[in-house]
Design a protein around this nucleic acid. Structure first.
Lengths: 153, 153
DNA sequence: GCAGCGAAGGTCAGGAAAGGTCAAAGGGCG
DNA sequence: CGCCCTTTGACCTTTCCTGACCTTCGCTGC
């Protein structure tokens, strides 16, 4: 027995799977209409089940001719290791912590050696001039972002 | 799905791309006529889609023999767009500045639409909870890093 | 020369058509 | 009961499109 949110999620994922290019354009009102619910319910589903964390990107436009576009980043459920690393990064991350995560990701085959090197370089360049508390915060932010983009392309 | 404004925009860009020298002269009335709309709709399109921020300059003249001229600013070449954007990002970058850079990168064919969406999302997610001065710094850092990784993969 | 007319284009405010936000109410489950 | 996830509705912001009214320019007749 699923909730309404589950049904909408499943419906969207089915539509998405039928789309080549993994991109779906849809109108919020139509969707709400089909499921006989208030439009904001759609936003709830998007916010809880279609985040970058889950491997999706959502864009939208308001006004006349407005729409909601859902883009799937990875065809099959993205690797567990990604979610794990994403969570592990947290809000603040030391240099050693970063090395540890990158090593695990490479071990798991989620990242190639060159990607690891690239990421390490970039993070270093962006943080080496920062003081302690801020550096760790920026590092976490960077790692989360870089992982999302690298694994999503 | 496009709105009328989208259609007019596309039409103008197509005409523009056919012009050598990237300059297009056209009459407002003719355009309005072709798209069956009021003339001021044309001004709306020009004001929302052909600003200098979008890489265009618009001049016009009123009165008899009046016209509207759209000039496409010479785009940054694809080979240099990356370092151009990297420099432009600088150490601090506003939300608008980010949009501008992403639009230029997409125009130049350096980034696909989905990459732009992804990057925009990630940057948003990582900065929306930050205060003004810090948000701009982190944004610049993130954009530089993401560009490096995306173009380096 | 210049006043006046007609033919451009410009501005602005308002209404309509989307989608977004947020907080409160509802509902299961330990 | 208390907590977390879901659902709803009231209210907000953005975008598009139109129409009324304004400004600028060339031309023509005096």
């Amino acid at each position: 027995m699923g909730t309404l949110a589950d049904d909408i999620e499943a419906y969207l994922k089915r539509l998405l799977s039928e789309m080549e290019q993994g991109t779906l354009d849809i109108r919020r009102t139509d969707l709400a209409d089909r499921f006989q619910c208030v439009p904001s319910q759609i936003n709830y589903v998007l916010k809880t089940r279609f985040t970058t964390r889950h491997g999706y990107v959502v864009e939208s436009r308001r006004g006349g001719g407005g729409y909601i576009r859902i883009v799937r980043l990875t065809p099959v459920g993205r690797s567990q290791i990604y979610s794990w690393a994403y969570d592990k990064a947290g809000r603040t991350l030391s240099k050693q912590g970063t090395e540890y995560l990158l090593a695990r990701l490479e071990d798991a085959g989620a990242l190639q050696n060159r990607d690891v090197a690239l990421i390490r370089n970039v993070i270093d360049q962006e943080t080496h001039h920062l003081e302690q508390p801020l550096a760790d915060i920026v590092r976490a932010s960077l790692l989360r972002s870089l992982l999302t983009v690298v694994m999503g392309s």
